[in-house]
């Protein structure tokens, strides 16, 4: 059921969970106003966008690992 290849894909999927931490850890990167989006400074829309990306990543990991389990 869990061969080597399966196991590796399983672990790789979990790495996706670290992406939001990487994207947001270095605050000086996004602590700026430009490029703004429809009048919203970068600082705000970048972080709001990562809420959505973070949710999608968790959803993807769930799908990957679920398939592994079944």
């Amino acid at each position: 059921m869990s061969g080597r290849g399966e196991k590796r894909r399983f672990r790789l999927a979990y790495l996706l969970l670290f992406l939001p931490f990487l994207a947001l850890a270095w605050v000086p990167y996004y602590n700026r106003a430009e490029p703004s989006l429809a009048g919203v400074p970068f600082f705000y829309w970048y972080q709001l966008l990562w809420i959505v990306i973070g949710a999608i990543l968790i959803g993807l990991v769930y799908l990957f690992t679920e398939r592994r389990a079944s």
């Binding site: 969970l17 670290f18 939001p20 931490f21 947001l24 602590n31 600082f43 705000y44 972080q47 709001l48 990562w50 809420i51 973070g54 949710a55 990543l57 968790i58 990991v61 769930y62």
Partner: peptide, 18 residues
């Protein structure tokens, strides 16, 4: 802007919960 820390806070919570 410091009040916006609530956003990365709630982003970090869910990978941990998962």
């Amino acid at each position: 802007a410091v009040g916006f820390f609530a956003v990365p806070y709630t982003i970090f919570v869910y990978p941990l919960v998962y």
